[in-house]
């Protein structure tokens, strides 16, 4: 249970970074932390204490495999999710650099030509 609370804690730290911070770089860091929180949640959902890698070899009994092997599906999902996060990170960093060239600041409050 405590590990789920940890996930929620990380999630809210990241959310705080996105919502409250004004610096674009800090917002990007917040975005990454939120992404990691969700990835961690997926991994924790599939995890078993004293677990083993879900690879069935000749040495492993099927019953023991069933009892101990961790769920491989969340790991596959997290791999996909990491790739998507990477795309977000790359795009946002490029955008931040280009915005710095235009506005000479990372402050979200000063990057505000659009109104209404």
């Amino acid at each position: 249970m405590i590990i789920y609370l940890l996930v929620v804690l990380i999630f809210f730290i990241g959310l705080y970074g996105i919502v409250a911070k004004k610096n674009i770089i800090k917002i990007i860091v917040g975005i990454n932390i939120v992404g990691y929180a969700i990835n961690l949640l997926f991994i924790v959902l599939g995890y078993k204490w004293e677990g083993m890698a879900p690879v069935l070899t000749r040495e492993v009994e099927v019953s023991e495999f069933y009892r101990r092997a961790v769920d491989p599906l969340p790991q596959a999902l997290v791999l996909t999710s990491i790739v998507i996060d990477l795309a977000f990170l790359a795009f946002l960093s490029a955008l931040a650099i280009r915005l710095y060239e235009k506005y000479a600041t990372f402050d979200m409050d000063k990057i505000r030509r659009l109104r209404g």
């Binding site: 795009f91 955008l95 915005l99 990057i111 505000r112 659009l114």
Partner: peptide
């Protein structure tokens, strides 16, 4: 455009 895209992306 980039400013709008930044807000939209977040």
């Amino acid at each position: 455009e980039m400013e709008a895209s930044l807000r939209y992306t977040v």
